[in-house]
């Protein structure tokens, strides 16, 4: 009796094996799907990062550089007593730095959320990107 139960158990133990034998593969597959979905979600979230916040970010980068440039020039003028000249020069440098900031952060945004490629693009998605 005990023996038969034992064999039975071993039989029933053998039975669920197919259930767990491919468990690793199934976990891997599920994780792949999950991370894929997560990536897509994150990408769409950053793309939707709202035009408002993108605009504010670029604007503040630009203006901050100009202000810092002009401020440095003003302080140098106060220190060296060179009239308005260094401030004017540094204002222009600030402008250049602002443009640099904007270009950099725009490139950063594009890298974070690549513009949709031809494959991703839906047919009716024409010029409003």
């Amino acid at each position: 009796m005990a023996l038969s139960r034992k064999t039975k158990r071993s039989q029933s133990g053998a039975k669920p094996e197919p259930l767990t034998s491919d468990l690793a593969a199934r976990i891997k597959r599920a994780q792949g799907e999950k991370s894929l979905a997560g990536d897509a979600e994150a990408a769409s979230a950053t793309r939707d990062m709202t035009g408002l916040s993108r605009g504010l970010r670029l604007g503040s980068e630009f203006i901050a550089a100009i202000l810092v440039g002009a401020g440095i020039g003003y302080l140098l003028d106060l220190w060296l007593k060179t009239g308005p000249w260094l401030m004017l020069v540094m204002l222009l440098v600030g402008f250049a730095a602002g443009v640099l900031n904007v270009v950099r952060s725009a490139a950063e945004m594009n890298r974070a959320a690549p513009p949709p490629t031809a494959a991703m693009r839906v047919p009716d998605d024409d010029e409003d990107e």
Binding site: S60, I63, A64, V68, A97, R104
Partner: peptide
């Protein structure tokens, strides 16, 4: 180099002004 320096120095300003202004 001055442009890069100003660009670097503008970071804390833009970082703080953005949050505060929003």
């Amino acid at each position: 180099v001055p442009i890069e320096v100003v660009s670097f120095l503008s970071r804390p300003i833009s970082l703080s002004v953005r949050l505060f202004a929003n």
